[in-house]
Design a protein around this nucleic acid. Sequence first.
DNA 1: CATTAGCACTCAAAATGCCAAAGTGCTAAA
DNA 2: TTTAGCACTTTGGCATTTTGAGTGCTAATG
Lengths: 337, 337
Amino acid sequence: MDKRKEQILKAIIKEYILEAEPVSSKTIMNRYGLNVSSATIRNEMAALEELGYIQQPHISSGRVPAPSGYRYYVDNLMEEEELLEEINLIDQLTSNISNINNYLKEVALMLAGASNYTVIVTEEKRGEETIHHLKLVGLLEDKALLVLVLSSNKVKDYVIPYLEKLSEEELISLSEILNQHLKDKEIKYLTLDLKNKIKGIFPNSPLLLEEIFNLIEKSLEEENNVEVIVEGVKNIFKLPEFNEVKKIAKFMETIENQEIITGLLRDAIGSEGNKIGVKIGEELGLEDLKDFTLIATNCSFCEGLNGKIGIIGPTRMFYEKNISLLEALLKKEDEND
Amino acid sequence: MDKRKEQILKAIIKEYILEAEPVSSKTIMNRYGLNVSSATIRNEMAALEELGYIQQPHISSGRVPAPSGYRYYVDNLMEEEELLEEINLIDQLTSNISNINNYLKEVALMLAGASNYTVIVTEEKRGEETIHHLKLVGLLEDKALLVLVLSSNKVKDYVIPYLEKLSEEELISLSEILNQHLKDKEIKYLTLDLKNKIKGIFPNSPLLLEEIFNLIEKSLEEENNVEVIVEGVKNIFKLPEFNEVKKIAKFMETIENQEIITGLLRDAIGSEGNKIGVKIGEELGLEDLKDFTLIATNCSFCEGLNGKIGIIGPTRMFYEKNISLLEALLKKEDEND
DNA sequence: CATTAGCACTCAAAATGCCAAAGTGCTAAA
DNA sequence: TTTAGCACTTTGGCATTTTGAGTGCTAATG
């Protein structure tokens, strides 16, 4: 790979990313100031094809980047991109985290808008979640609200009917008793013994307590599952390569499968920790995604809230911009630590 | 419109809803036991076309229902449909409302699954929301959680930094003071005077109080906006009439516009209150939705939570089934009152 | 010896023509 | 009033032709 070959490969990839059409030798001569004739470029293109970096859809057509061409581009040819506007957006978002439950979703929405591709996020399974605080609030004559603050700072709430009527004072004392016994305990310690003990302390409300135990177990179990967020699916509709409903349906089918998403993000980020992973086409290991690229990284802004976040688009993707986007996010994260 | 014309119109519409292809006189003769020849059916079809109920895509093709044909069908020819499975689903869902924040979303998901079309829901602007209960919870050394229970039963929560350090006891007493002064007050009563009064009572935490006031105002303002939920968009991909990416993109564009959604639901339900509205094609008043039908109704299961809910699909829609679905929902609602 | 002009060649996509199948309308007979 | 039968129309599929973009190769050039 001499200098000129690299220039031509870079030109082909840049042009193809922009236009989504096979690139001809003439186009490169006209638009990328190489100061050689189209014939020379053709010779170089033949060599690049020999090396496996580009392909011809058919014998008399222009060239298209091959998977290994994109890989070479990302590893060796790509330049950093400055993103002023987008960094502004990230700053705004991260300096103003008020509702933790929605935070990752907001980040996903912002990135989907900024990238114009699809953004996938998983929220980490965070081992054994516990109840950090519990409170019963009387709502109306026949209903109360159970508020659970979990160890991850998330808040969950459930409306429960008064299975047995309680006064406001009784509610408060019940809250206190529950807090005493359940605070910071992992779910496995919510044993039948403990339940019975609490029922013994508060013998007038066995049904209500049963319901509360159920909801606590439900909520902790829920939280020990990975949550998946997908935003900006419709962005890919505008791309010329998705000109068939079938392709769109297939993509949406894939992207809705939570196990696939978590697997993709895990593999793309790998064990490298705080770096940005780029998986191109077949590197993703899924036939249905062979024409997609995933750019992904870990993400952990506030304590107790860790996730993986990725931008997925066609292999013909604006690599510089999207890598820079995630880099900006990572940088912000470092600052906040 | 004599009896036989009605039979034939009904047959054409039923057949077209099933097959999405122009219906020929021969098909009707074979599949709908009318005991007349195809020639006779052809004569009747010519008459129905004269009346504007059906159309020919081209001169030698079968017939397709015209908008007024669907209208006549819905008003005069349609039969009720029994839905055993689906009613089961509705029962399950409505008898087990635990998380109010997500309730309407769950209903939407269920209906999207049952109908195989797209479901749109708006949550009603509910006039002046108030704080029903407020609580500050210490989380970690430098952060607290503000939990707001609103008059609509919704729970909102925000993480706030300790702008001034507070002990656990101070937090509790601050919660109490705020509750005393803010409980059941509309946002307009959260005046500068009141704010200063509270700051006077708790002079050590002016910054923290300012932040709390901001969040209360933000959350009440948010709640006075209409929330829009859309589920099951991808269902329409499978329909043969959406065989072009353009059509899908246009539909998604329309369906993402919250103002359009609220307008559609408002107009479809009209002022009739507890009835089911059906708007067919051009009746929706939007060029982009001229090939869609919206079936909609009001929805108010639990106190403080009102919404409008609609099923949107192609004009070639299973009218009976979807109307029955919403009727089942309404019936359940009556029982719960 | 690298570069390039020029030309023959290839292939995809668009345009054209043709034919069968599906379906209608109309006429004349039952 | 109904219907059998037939002429007529249109669509959609298929094969064929045309066009144009783009290449590879050869021979000439500095």
